[in-house]
Design a protein around this nucleic acid. Structure first.
Lengths: 204, 204
DNA sequence: GCATTTACTAAACAGTGTTTATTATATTCA
DNA sequence: TGAATATAATAAACACTGTTTAGTAAATGC
């Protein structure tokens, strides 16, 4: 009976179809304007059908949030080849900031919005987040071992680095960097300069 | 004709009534669950009446956002008496973090949510934000003058400090600090430790 | 070929922010 | 004071939202 397998495959294909449509609409118009009805319209099914494949809207955006982490991961791992951990740390930070600037809606879903985190409460662990943070910790651990950065607790240092770049990106994404009263490209440049300064202060 | 003045006063009183009700409901149940209808119910007027005093929901929350800045301002100015600017900087940071932890909904409105910023687009300037940031810059300027912290551009240093504390608080408020897998009070302690470390790294 | 399971949807429910047309009250002016 | 006007408040509707329920049509199992 290969029917069961085919059905399972079809179910997965339908989920993918929904996610693809939702992702495209989300990146075009944001979370709030991406309604279940608009996704249903786009894939030419009734709104109720979507609820046969996803528990609720949050679950859809939880999957998109996971996909976004995969994309960020790919970006970050481009720097795997950099031998010097401090240089690698710098590359990671710059790539993280760049990712946030270029993909504000993804960034929102990953690190700002409450929607995907509601899902996580039913799962106990924020796997995607821990994976990305773990990757940062690895590099920081190398830096500490080789005495490239000031000695401190690994986790505290990790929180320090992440909080810093997140602060930069999230203030930018949620339009608080307007206090600088600079055009967008200058503001982005300031984000990068600030990070460079931060790195310099971290160095031994 | 004192009638005009009385009418103006009554109009302002009604606005205050709406804001008081909205604030109380917002702090109890958050932005999304604070509907125009629930405010109307609370003040015993019809929902349409609210639109005679405020353009839309965003305008109401813009006013609450301004009030929140006044509250934060009062907290920060408690440290006006600290003579040493570096010590004052530390006090400001700790108070800012504490404010965010203790008033997550206010913090949300001030520094994370898009709602109040929509209003600001019609006003050109984010007065509340600039005022608070200006207060930070003053202290930083004193630190730089007295050579208490590493020399760098004032604005870049300001962005650096603000981004850092904002990163800490916003990751906490939006529940991303769960990666630490620590109970809430320990997580809060880590926020403060991270800030202390940051300050130490900034010192000359 | 028939019973059962699966896939899908129309319609409804309970909300939301906001606007419009209408009514009741208060003010102005002859 | 009484009619005309301006103001304040609202009921009801509009156009949405996420989600559930009940019913239908097709695919599957026996």
């Amino acid at each position: 009976m290969a029917i069961k397998e085919r059905k399972e495959r079809e179910k997965q294909e339908m989920r993918n179809l929904i996610i693809e449509s939702a992702t495209q609409l989300f990146l075009k118009q944001g979370y709030d304007k991406t309604s279940i009805r608009s996704i249903a319209d786009d894939i030419e099914y009734s709104p109720a059908t979507i609820y046969l494949y996803f528990k609720d809207k949050d679950e859809i955006f939880y999957v998109i949030h996971e996909n976004a982490f995969d994309i960020l991961d790919k970006h970050l791992r481009q720097h795997d080849g950099i031998a010097d951990p401090f240089e690698r740390l710098g590359a990671l930070g710059r790539t993280y900031i760049q990712f946030g600037i270029e993909n504000p809606d993804y960034y929102d879903l990953m690190f700002i919005m409450r929607a995907p985190m509601e899902q996580i409460k039913n799962e106990e662990k924020w796997k995607a987040g821990e994976c990305a943070f773990g990757y940062l910790l690895t590099t920081l651990s190398d830096c500490l071992e080789q005495g490239k950065i000031r000695q401190a607790d690994l986790y505290v240092t990790g929180i320090q680095v992440w909080s810093y770049v997140h602060g930069l990106v999230s203030l930018y994404v949620r339009e608080r960097m307007c206090i600088l009263m600079q055009p967008d490209d200058v503001t982005r440049q300031i984000l990068h300069s600030s990070f460079d300064l931060f790195l310099a202060n971290l160095k031994t």
